[in-house]
Simulated assay, not measured.
Amino acid sequence: MPANKKYLTPSPSQRFAKITAAILGGLVVAVLFHMALASWFNHVAVIITSTFTAFILWAILMVVAFLGKNGWKVWGMYLLISLVLSVIFYFGNQTNPLV
């Protein structure tokens, strides 16, 4: 049974934005989230559990990317989240160095 046309994305650029945001943006956010956690908490425990939770978080972020109406807004949201997580990771490494 074919999909209803009103639910499909008509623009190729929107389709490209949603697919790349789901795959690349979701992966970057999932990995940066676990890196930020590892910089503040026990990094060995976070890395071990991230093998499971990173995949689950990535799958959730993939679904979220396709739920949005505008793929470029999803990209912007993922880039903003990545920036915030990068700052948290940076200050976590400055505060709690591994050496």
Score class of each variant (00 low, 15 high):
K6I: 10
Y7A: 09
Y7I: 14
Y7V: 07
Y7H: 13
L8A: 14
P10F: 02
P10D: 09
S13G: 07
Q14G: 15
I19M: 13
T20L: 03
A21Y: 08
A22Y: 06
A22K: 04
G25D: 01
G26K: 00
G26D: 04
V28Q: 05
V29H: 01
V31M: 09
M35K: 05
A36F: 07
A36C: 06
A36I: 05
A38N: 03
A38Q: 00
S39Y: 02
F41C: 02
N42A: 06
V44G: 00
A45D: 15
A45T: 12
V46P: 05
T49I: 12
T51I: 15
T51Y: 12
A54C: 03
F55K: 07
F55Q: 11
I56K: 05
L57E: 04
L57Q: 03
L57N: 02
W58E: 01
A59C: 13
I60H: 09
L61F: 13
L61T: 05
V63F: 10
A65E: 01
F66T: 02
G71Y: 01
G71R: 00
W72R: 07
K73P: 00
V74R: 04
V74G: 03
V74K: 04
V74A: 10
L80F: 14
I81S: 11
S82N: 09
L83E: 03
V84Q: 07
S86F: 14
S86R: 12
I88Q: 09
Y90I: 13
F91G: 12
N93H: 08
Q94G: 11
Q94I: 08
Q94K: 14
T95V: 10
L98H: 09
